[in-house]
């Protein structure tokens, strides 16, 4: 398993459009992707779970990837979140 912390910077947080982008990109990787923040855990391939976790702007999340292509997946996830999920 690999993991890295990253802060959500897009103004509206992980709402529908950013979550959609994240899930679409992450689904391309075979490994498990989970986001952890404030004791909450959300599956990175589930738009419903991501949105329900209410990850707002300024929240520091830990992205964990576990399984095949975990390094590539983590790199992509961090890049997406730190670049504002298509919104910043």
């Amino acid at each position: 398993m690999v993991s890295q912390k990253v802060t959500i910077i897009n103004p509206m947080g992980m709402h529908m459009r950013p979550a959609q982008l994240f899930v679409n990109e992450m689904s391309a990787f075979p490994c498990e992707v989970t986001l952890h923040a404030d004791g909450r855990e959300a599956n990175g391939k589930s738009i419903l779970h991501l949105m329900a976790a209410c990850l707002k702007k300024g929240t520091e999340v830990e992205v964990r990837c576990d399984g095949a292509q975990e390094k590539e997946a983590l790199e992509k996830a961090v890049e997406l979140i730190s670049s504002g999920l298509g919104e910043a």
Binding site: M16, R17, Q20, V23, N24, N43, S46, I47, L48, H49
Partner: peptide, 19 residues
């Protein structure tokens, strides 16, 4: 664009592995 994206979001939601 944005209104259309909301609808496309419905597709992603329905295809959610958990759902």
């Amino acid at each position: 664009e944005k209104e259309a994206d909301i609808l496309l979001g419905h597709i992603t939601m329905l295809h959610d592995p958990f759902m």
